[in-house]
Design a protein around this nucleic acid. Structure first.
Lengths: 391, 391
DNA sequence: CCAATTATGCTGAGTTATAGCAATATTATT
DNA sequence: AATAATATTGCTATAACTCAGCATAATTGG
C-alpha cells in the first residue's frame, strides 16, 4: 500500500460516513473517521469537485448554543440514479431511485405469460425509457442496475430453469440488459433479492437471517449470512424445492393460492380464507395451523443447521404473518429442544423484490463510485445533457 | 489511516507472504507484495530484529545461472509454539506444534468417563507441562491455544450440554484454560474444529464445504462457508441432531459402532463388518447401502440449501469413505435433480480434531503476532529462560 | 580475467497525514 | 452595545513513510 492507496482508503471511508449520515458536520466526520481535520478537508474538496458531495446550506441552527456554526456536508444522493428491474412470467416491473434508494418513479406492466423473449425485451426497453424520461434522466446517468428473475442464476450469468419462462434457459440476462447501459448490470434470483431487501433496515441490526419467499406454491430461500448474501456454487443455494427432506417442496395451502380446474391460480378464495382466519373462524385457523405444521420441520432443520439470528417469512407467507408467526411459535415450542432463532414476518410486501434490487445496487455503489470518479466526469447537475444520452 | 497504519498493513502483508512461502528471495517478495524493495527492506529489518523473520543461509544455489546470488528470508517458525487440546469424556489429547503447525510432540491420555472436572484439569495441566518440557519450551512461549470440546460452545465461552460430561454445562473452559497462559485461548466445538482442519490443505482450494463428523452414533456438522467457520447464534450452527427432518439425528449403523447389552460402545464388530464389506460380502455391503440411504436425504437438503463446493465425510464416516462415497453417489444420482456439490471423504482420520485446533491457532496468529510484536520481546532463541516460566 | 547479469546498500525526492496557530463567526454576559 | 467565551475554519509547517534510482557488490560464462 502506497500513499495513493492510503488516500483512496481514506476517501472511501469518508464517503461511506457521508453516505450513511449526511448532512454531517466536520466535527462528527472527524470523530467517526478518526482522521485529521485537514485530511478530511482535502478529501471533501475532491469529492465536491467531482460532484459526489456538497456543501449543504442547512447548518443546524439552534442545535448548538455557542461558537461559530459548523458547515455541513452532504452526500449528493441526486448525482445519479439506480435502476431496479423485476422480470416475471406475468409482468415487468421497474423502479428508478436516487443513490439513497429513495424511489423516484415506478412502473409495472402486466403481460401474458406466453410473451416471447424478444417482445419482453422490447417492452422492458420501453419501460426503462418511460421511467427515465419521467424523472428527467438518461441511461448514462444510471450508475447501477439490478435485475430480478425467477430460476437459478448461474455463476456465468446465464439463467436456468424458470419453469414459467422456458425461453430463458441458458440465456444471459446480464449481457442482454448490459447492452443498454454502460454501468454494471447484476442479475439475481428473486428469492435471494427479496432476502437482500430485508437487510439492515433502519439500523445495523438484521445481518444474519434466512428468508423464506413464497410465490404462489413455489418456495425459494434467500440466505444472508454474516451480512453477506449467499449464492452457493452456481447460485444454487436456497433451491430447497429439490430437497424433499425439508418438506418445503411446495406449499399447497388454500391460504396462499387456490387453483381452479384448469390449474390457473386464483387468489380470491385464499384472501377470503385469510380474512375468516383473522375473524377467528375455526376452520380457517385450522388451515393456518396446517400450514405451520408443514413449515415447522424445515424451519427447525434450517435453524439448527445454520443458527441464523432470524428466519423471516416473506412473499405470501409474509402477508399472513400475523396468523402464521404465532402458530409457528406454538408448534416450534414443542420441539425437543427449542430453537434460539427468532421467527418473524417480512417488513415488506409486494415491493420486497424491487427493494432488494435497489439494495444490491447500493451495495455495489462503493466500487462503482470509485471507478466512476476515476473517470471523474459525472456532472454535479443531476440532469445530463441530451448529447450524452446516446452513450 | 495514517502512515503508521499503512506501515502496519504493509508489514502484515509481507509477513503473510513470508509465512506462506519461505524461504523467499527479495525479488519474489517484491513481486508478490507489489511494494518497493526499500519498503520491504525496512520491514524485514524490523521483523528480524523482533525475531519473527530471519536471514536464511540456504541461498538456492544452482537454481539461477548468473548474477549475484539473492539473500533468502524465512519466517521464524520456531520463534514460538502453539498448542492444540482435545478434551473428551474418555481422553485428553494435546499436541504442541511450531508456528507452521508442524507437530513437535503429542500426548494422549485415556481416562474413565466418570473423572471429575477437577481431576480432568489436574491431568490436563500435567499433560501440558510434560509436552512443553519435552520440546524444551515454557508456557510463556506458547502463542495461541485452541481447545476442542463436545457440546455447544456459546458466545460467552461457556459450554452447554455435553451429554457425556454433565459437569461442564455452564462452565467457561476458555477462562479455566486461559489462566494457565497469557496468550489467547479459544474454545470450540469438536465437529466445527474437525471441519476447520480440512481447510486449505496444500493449495487454496477447499474454502467452502460442509463437514459431517460422526463420533460413535452422534453426528455433528461443521460449516466452512466462504473460507469462514460458521458458529451461528451462540455456536448452535451444525447441531442437527435436534432437527429430525434431516434424518441425521443419530447414526446407528453397525458399520460405525456396536453396543453391547449394557449400552457400552464396542468397535470391534463394526471393524469386522467393514472389513467384510471391503471384501465384497453382500450382507455387509447392504449395511453400507443402508447407511447411505439414511444419509442421502439430509445431504441432499444441505446441498440444496447451501450449495457448498463440497460435502466432506469425517470421523467414523470418513474411515469408511471408500465404501460410503460410491454408495452415496449412486443414491444421489437418483435424485429428481442431481446436486452439484462434490461428496468426498476427509483427508484426516483420528487426528482431524487436533489438526483443526492447530489450524484455528494459525488463523488467529496474524493478530496475535502484531500484539506480541507491539510488546516486542520474544527472544529469537526458541528456548525461553527458566525465570520467565512462572508468568 | 573481463563482460554480463543480478542483487544490495543507501540517498534523495515525492506524497500524504498530522499538528497547531491565527482568524472568524456565533452565543452568552455585562 | 461591547466584551468574553466558545467552536469552527483556513492555512502553513512538520513528520512519516514509500518510491525511484544510482553506485557497488557478488556471481557465472567465455
Amino acid at each position: 500500500m502506497d500513499h495513493g492507496e492510503m488516500h483512496h482508503h481514506n476517501t472511501a471511508r469518508t464517503l461511506d460516513i457521508l453516505y450513511r449520515s449526511s448532512p454531517i458536520t466536520m466535527a462528527k466526520l472527524r470523530k467517526e473517521s478518526g482522521l485529521a481535520r485537514r485530511t478530511i478537508e482535502v478529501i471533501l474538496e475532491n469529492l465536491i469537485a467531482k460532484g459526489w458531495a456538497k456543501d449543504s446550506e442547512a447548518s443546524a441552527k439552534g442545535v448548538r448554543s455557542v461558537g461559530r456554526p459548523a458547515r455541513t456536508f452532504s452526500f449528493s444522493y441526486d448525482a445519479a440514479c439506480i435502476l431496479a428491474i423485476q422480470l416475471e412470467a406475468g409482468h415487468i416491473s421497474a423502479t428508478v431511485a436516487d443513490l439513497a434508494a429513495n424511489p423516484l418513479a415506478a412502473r409495472r406492466q402486466v403481460l401474458p405469460i406466453a410473451t416471447s423473449r424478444q417482445e419482453r425485451f422490447r417492452l422492458l426497453g420501453e419501460c426503462i425509457e418511460v421511467l427515465l424520461t419521467e424523472v428527467g434522466r438518461t441511461r448514462s446517468s444510471v450508475l447501477a442496475v439490478t435485475v430480478s428473475t425467477p430460476g437459478i442464476v448461474q455463476d456465468d450469468g446465464t439463467v436456468e430453469l424458470p419453469f414459467t419462462m422456458p425461453e430463458w434457459s441458458g440465456f444471459s440476462l446480464s449481457e442482454a440488459v448490459g447492452q443498454l447501459f454502460d454501468c454494471p448490470v447484476q442479475v439475481e434470483n428473486d428469492a435471494k433479492l427479496a432476502a437482500l431487501g430485508e437487510k439492515n433496515i433502519g439500523g445495523l441490526d438484521t445481518q444474519d437471517f434466512v428468508y423464506l419467499y413464497s410465490d404462489s406454491e413455489r418456495l425459494g430461500i434467500g440466505l444472508v449470512l454474516r451480512n453477506e448474501l449467499r449464492r452457493g456454487v452456481d447460485g444454487a443455494a436456497g433451491e430447497i424445492s429439490w430437497a424433499p427432506a425439508l418438506g418445503l417442496r411446495s406449499l399447497t395451502s388454500p391460504l396462499l393460492v387456490d387453483f381452479d380446474d384448469e390449474g390457473s391460480p386464483n387468489y380470491q378464495p385464499a384472501r377470503d380464507l385469510v380474512a375468516r382466519a383473522r375473524e377467528g373462524d375455526a376452520r380457517a385457523l385450522a388451515e393456518v395451523d396446517k400450514l405451520a405444521q408443514t413449515l415447522a420441520p424445515g424451519i427447525t432443520a434450517i435453524a439448527w443447521l445454520l443458527a441464523p439470528q432470524e428466519i423471516i417469512l416473506g412473499g405470501g407467507l409474509g402477508e399472513i404473518q400475523d396468523l402464521l408467526v404465532p402458530a409457528l411459535e406454538r408448534i416450534l415450542q414443542r420441539n425437543e429442544r427449542p430453537i434460539t432463532t427468532l421467527i418473524r414476518g417480512s417488513k415488506f410486501g409486494q415491493e420486497c423484490i424491487l427493494n432488494g434490487c435497489l439494495r444490491m445496487c447500493i451495495e455495489s455503489l462503493g466500487e462503482i463510485l470509485f471507478e466512476a470518479s476515476e473517470l471523474s466526469t459525472l456532472s454535479a447537475d443531476p440532469v445530463v445533457s441530451a448529447e450524452a444520452a446516446h452513450v
